[in-house]
Every structure is written in structure tokens, then in C-alpha cells.
């Protein structure tokens, strides 16, 4: 949750929407009025919402993947070469530290570590796993409803509340 830590005591207005069209429309209108949207809940991944929010399609997780991939190649080559160097056995008349067969461990470790890092990146950035769901969350958001969370100060809470209703929210809640 962006800013959740220092805005812990702030009030949030959560608007609930019934379908995609409504929520996208609401996002556009909130943005048009320069009301900062904290987050948008949806039961599934939606490119419409992403586009409406103006977010890039790829997150920073890609750098985790890149790092994992490079680390994987290094690990694979190092493991194959280092272990062979321990005894320098000759097998099949080959040089004790042959280079061709290091390709396979390098490739497989590339994939493995890249996947580990991608997953790790996703979990880290989402602060997962976590024990407590945030208080803005509504169980129906994973089922059939959409939600928009907007933080407000004491002064503009009422107006944002009204805007939500005006933009088509089926239900608007104020959460301290």
C-alpha cells in the first residue's frame, strides 16, 4: 500500500463498484479532478484499470528477474568448474574441467534463480506473506466487486465521499 505507513491514522474513503465499466469510468473522473487514488481493488487482473490509472505494464520486478538470471549463470558455471577442480578426474579422455558441459548447469541455474528472484520480488514488493489484511479490504473484492480507495484529510473527506457516490459507487464506506 503506497503511503500506508505514514498515513496510518488517515481516513480513507472506499468506493465499491459492481462492474468494470463503472470502475474505469470512476477512475477516469477521479483522475480528471486530480483526486489521488490510493489503490483500486479488482477480482481479476484488468488492463483497463491499469490503463485508466496510467500505470506501465511492467513493474520493477523485472530487475529482480534480470539479477536472478545473471546470478544463475554465474552459479551454474562456478559450481561445475569448482567441483571439477577438486579432484580433476579424467573421464572419457576429456579435460578435467571441460567447458561444453558447463552450458547445461549455467542454463538451468539461470532459469531457477531468475524464477526465485521474480517470485521473491513480487512477494517483497507486495509485502507478502502477511497475516493481517488491510482494513480497506473487503472480502467481496476477490469475488465480484471492485473498489477504489482514496485517502482524505478531515477537510476533504466529505467531498470525496460525495464524489464517489456521484461517480457511480454502489456503496461508499469511510474507514478511519
Amino acid at each position: 500500500m503506497r503511503g500506508a505507513a505514514f498515513m496510518a491514522n488517515q481516513t480513507a474513503v472506499v468506493g465499491t463498484f459492481g462492474n468494470m465499466e463503472e470502475v474505469v469510468k470512476a477512475i477516469r473522473r477521479l483522475k480528471a479532478e486530480n483526486i489521488p487514488i490510493d489503490s483500486v481493488y479488482s477480482p481479476f487482473r484488468s488492463s483497463e484499470i491499469r490503463e485508466a490509472l496510467g500505470e506501465p505494464s511492467l513493474g520493477p520486478g523485472r530487475f529482480f528477474t534480470l539479477f536472478g538470471a545473471i546470478a544463475g549463470i554465474a552459479t551454474g558455471i562456478f559450481l561445475a568448474a569448482y567441483t571439477a577442480a577438486q579432484w580433476r578426474f579424467i573421464v572419457g579422455g576429456k579435460y578435467p574441467i571441460p567447458y561444453v558441459p558447463t552450458v547445461i548447469p549455467a542454463f538451468e541455474f539461470l532459469i531457477l534463480l531468475a524464477v526465485f528472484f521474480s517470485l521473491g520480488g513480487m512477494l517483497w514488493m507486495n509485502k507478502m506473506p502477511k497475516r493481517q489484511l488491510s482494513k480497506h479490504y473487503d472480502k467481496r473484492f476477490s469475488q465480484d466487486l471492485f473498489g477504489i480507495v482514496v485517502y482524505c484529510s478531515a477537510s476533504d473527506c466529505d467531498s470525496i465521499y460525495a464524489r464517489m457516490e456521484q461517480f457511480g459507487a454502489r456503496e461508499v464506506r469511510r474507514i478511519e
Binding site: 579432484w87 578426474f89 579424467i90 573421464v91 572419457g92 579422455g93 576429456k94
Partner: peptide, 13 residues
């Protein structure tokens, strides 16, 4: 054999 085909296929030397 000097280039023994049996040797390199063993996973554990």
C-alpha cells in the same frame, strides 16, 4: 580406453 565412453556418463565419478 583412453577415451572411455563409460566414464563420463556416470553422474558420481
Amino acid at each position: 580406453c583412453d577415451n572411455a565412453p563409460c566414464e563420463y556418463v556416470c553422474p558420481i565419478f
